[in-house]
Design a protein around this nucleic acid. Structure first.
Length: 573
RNA sequence: CGGGGUGUAGCGCAGCCUGGUAGCGUAACUCGUUUGGGACGAGGAGGUCGGAGGUUCAAAUCCUCUCACCCCGACCA
């Protein structure tokens, strides 16, 4: 592309709404425009990145014999009613109706559509497994869109779906997809981690599910990992603590703790370690038809992992219990404990708590704590023990190594769905015995536009983006400095020669000052910058090649240009 | 939805407290000089001050309502 023919505008100042590097740089480099909250226009250079990402995905999907399809973005409400998600996803979906009053929605995901395709297409186990994918626009009316492309409402996603006769086949399909995903993100030049994840509403507890996380400081997810062989999303990570020394079987007594509402205050006052006390949290679990209240007990210096609690309870959502409800349950805020409270309150202990040891807890009495509280002796309610705590650095992973935590951006997620949709939508096939079975499904997503943003988050500097060559909008930024016809002809010649050699070149023939071109080049972050400077060229007849990532430069003569650049491209790949 | 914040030219901001009819920087436009890190000079253009209502002789400014957007939480590729 010649910039003199292109529509491209960069900016010196960036809209204040952009807070993270990818959002700021995409706007500054004129690659995207916002058209509404969480909705963006992709301008030419962004589109080129997107297309490159898509093509890598296509190649890797093709390699595992997944077939590309395109499902409609608008889907009929009837399909969603069959699966039961029409009402369930009401808040996430934009729902509307046509002139005939028929319900429609903008697809936030496509399990229903693909299952519908499947049930019309496949009648026999002999046709299994089936693997289909699409790369398409999704719309999710997110509660809070943010960070530009990182969490948009409209975004591009690759979603793949597989159908299998049995679990064994599903596992094989899942592993293939797992490997394909590894290849995809590796080829994109991204540093990423594959982590054990929480299945959320998508699957059951036995379903395998992994997330692909691009490592970046601005990531929204915490990844708990050890060197080598363990990585899990903090939502899921089940680690254990080390070096705890609990007190044994003390007698229980009341301690006056006026106005000491934090564990820190109480423990300092009594002179114990924070983990020798128990933290009491009150949660209300909500189902469509009922509510239940829970008292969650954790070691004093641990934090609750709400997702673990929600998964254990199996409710629709979880709320902090309201103050008046707490009063009804006999709980005094700041001094809550598992004694003297209502029978309507179910007590759950975190698994790190040794029920036979003694702790400081709230006494459910104003300005009072209990010392020497031993769950097995001083509490008559049922003692349920579950892993509820949030993993911390230094904990031990299942492999016995101490874990660390780093930030990640979830760019891919693979799930085993089971027969949830095939059952609900009666997508059945005949097995060998001629009996109807509901095939097992897997679903596999990649956030294409999010991946573009994640690549920037991972790789940029104060001057702009630094693209991995496999997804850069172009491979080479060719800056031409000089105004004489001679230089212009030379530049155009070189440009044509490079293009003819199959190199992707962005030719800056705008005739701007060198500073402006270099600033734009750095901002756009193409891996290789080629400069034709009239002044220098007259002296030594050479061009300059500079690498965006390292800043290394070298001088090259005209005849070597194509071969040197081709080698650089190879080195960068 | 709860909490916090912002809306004035494409973008970044000042003006608002103490009402008098809008300004700075930058980008974009024209002319000229510049050409290895956003260069300089000159000229011109661009705004229903988010919207509605109210107070007032007079509202960007004060009052009421409303909308949009951003940030913190639940959601997720």
């Amino acid at each position: 592309m010649r910039l003199s023919k292109a529509s491209w505008q960069t900016y010196k100042e960036i809209p204040k709404e952009a807070e993270i590097p990818s959002h700021q740089l995409l706007l500054k480099a004129g690659m995207i425009h916002k058209s509404g909250s969480g909705i963006y226009q992709y301008l030419p250079f962004a589109l080129r990145v997107i297309q490159k990402i898509e093509n890598i995905i296509r190649q890797e999907m093709d390699a595992i014999y997944s077939q590309e399809i395109t499902m409609s973005m608008v889907t009929p409400g009837d399909l969603w009613k069959e699966s039961g998600r029409w009402d369930l996803m009401e808040n996430l979906m934009v729902q509307f109706h046509d002139r005939g009053g028929k319900d429609l929605c903008l697809s936030p995901t496509n399990e229903e559509s693909v299952t519908d395709i499947f049930r019309r297409l496949v009648k026999s186990y002999k046709q299994l497994p089936v693997s289909l994918y699409q790369i398409n626009t999704k719309f999710r009316d997110e509660i809070r869109p943010r960070f530009g492309l990182m969490r948009g409402r409209e975004f591009i996603m690759k979603d793949a779906y597989t159908f299998h006769a049995d679990k064994e086949s599903l596992d094989i399909g899942y592993d293939e997809m797992y490997k394909a995903y590894s290849n995809i993100f590796t080829r994109m030049g991204l540093e990423f981690a594959i982590v054990e994840a929480d299945a959320g509403n998508m699957g059951t507890n036995e379903s395998k599910t992994h997330e692909f996380q691009v490592i970046a400081n601005t990531g929204e997810d915490d990844i708990v990992y050890t060197e080598g062989d363990y990585a899990a999303n903090i939502e899921k990570a089940a680690t254990t603590r080390v070096g705890l020394e609990f007190l044994n079987n003390e007698d229980m007594s009341e301690v006056e703790t006026p106005n000491m509402r934090t564990i820190k205050d109480v423990c300092e006052f009594i002179g114990t370690k924070q983990y020798q006390s128990l933290k009491s949290l009150v949660y209300t679990a909500v189902w469509p038809d009922r509510e239940e209240h829970f008292l969650v007990m954790l070691l004093g210096d641990d934090e609750l992992n709400e997702l673990k609690l929600k998964n254990y309870i199996g409710c629709n959502f979880l709320l902090m219990t309201k103050e008046e409800t707490m009063r009804d349950l006999g709980l005094i805020k700041g001094f809550i404990g598992p004694t003297n409270c209502s029978e309507n309150l179910k007590v759950i202990y975190d698994k790190e708590i040794d029920l036979n040891c003694s702790y400081i807890v709230g006494a459910n009495k104003k300005d009072t704590h209990l010392k020497g509280f031993t769950p097995s002796e001083n509490c008559n309610s049922e003692k349920v023990q579950v892993d509820l705590r949030t993993a911390k650095p230094g904990d031990l992973a299942p492999n016995g190594k101490a874990v660390k935590i780093k930030k990640g951006i979830e760019v891919g997620h693979i799930f085993q769905l089971g027969d949830k949709y095939t059952k609900a939508m009666k997508a059945q096939v005949l097995n060998k015995e001629g009996k109807k079975i509901s095939p097992l499904m897997g679903c596999y997503g990649i956030g294409v536009t999010r991946t573009m943003a994640a690549a920037i988050e991972q790789s940029h500097d104060e001057n702009g983006m630094i693209w991995p060559i496999s997804i850069a909008p172009y491979q080479v930024y060719f800056a031409m400095i000089g105004k004489t016809d001679e230089t212009k002809f030379l530049g155009l010649d070189i440009y044509k020669e490079l293009v003819a050699a199959g190199i992707e070149v962005l030719f800056d023939d705008r005739g701007l000052g060198p500073g402006q071109m270099f600033k734009d080049a750095d901002l756009l972050g193409l891996p290789i910058r080629l400069t034709l400077g009239e002044r220098d060229y007259k002296v030594d007849g050479k061009f300059e090649i500079k690498l965006r990532k390292t800043g290394d430069t070298e001088k090259v003569s005209k005849d070597e240009l194509v071969s040197v650049i081709k080698n650089k491209i190879k080195d960068l790949a």
